[in-house]
Amino acid sequence: MARHRESADESRNEIPVWAERYARNRTLHIVLFLICWPIITFLITWGSTVLLMPSGGLPHIIMSIAFNAGIAAGLLWAMATGRFSRAFQRFTEWLYRKEGSAVPPLPIRRASHGILRFLAAVACFGAGPWLLTFVFLHVLNVPPAYLQPAIAAVIVPFLIVVILMGPDNPKWPGLLWPALYAMHAVLTLAGVRLSMFSVSQLASGNELFPTALILFDVYVPLFVYGMLMLTVMHIYSRYALLRLRMAALLPMEADEKGDDDGHA
């Protein structure tokens, strides 16, 4: 009886908690999507540019631009009509078909949260790094080697605020992302060479296109650490599922009544 009481208390506390943690950390579909998406985009762009314009003549260039514009228009259409999200949902269901579907508690939607998420997306993956790069490089004259730390000084606090305020995200795995990006910046400032390019490559890149190569040093770590965070979340969801199953099988006081009326 006493043993049942203790395990009932444990189940009472643990089942809802681990169920929610499991549901919130199911990120494998996002990880796979983020791996596949750049590859598909690259293949389409590479295919259309290299294969469609072997001679480099004007008709081929026009054809290539038209093809890419068609792909972009198709994507926008798929996103606007919801086909993209439905396909993503089907992919998620297929991926987790053996475990079933578990949806975490929905957050209380506030307009400010939506705006904040939109700003975060723009700041992290859209115009944010480009704009910051321009300001740091051309207005403030920050040397290219210190660009990632300069951008991290803006993006890291912003990410922390968004993650802590965002009710959708689990707190600690989410914080791994800004923490790693900040660590990258600190190491760069300490003199550790983390850039993917040599100084001469950066210099030649500057002649061709001012911020193209330098931005790789800003974008790639942001993407890689984001992926790392999502992978950690996926691993954590495996642990949460294990704990949930263990908690769900603990004996409880109600077990003394027995499973007398549930047999089909």
Binding site: I15, V17, E20, A102, L244
Partner: peptide, 18 residues
């Protein structure tokens, strides 16, 4: 108890977990 921690769960999830 399981549903109290979630917004929604499906048949497969409940069957496998419990």
């Amino acid at each position: 108890m399981l549903l109290s921690g979630l917004e929604e769960a499906d048949f497969t999830f409940l069957m496998n977990t419990l």
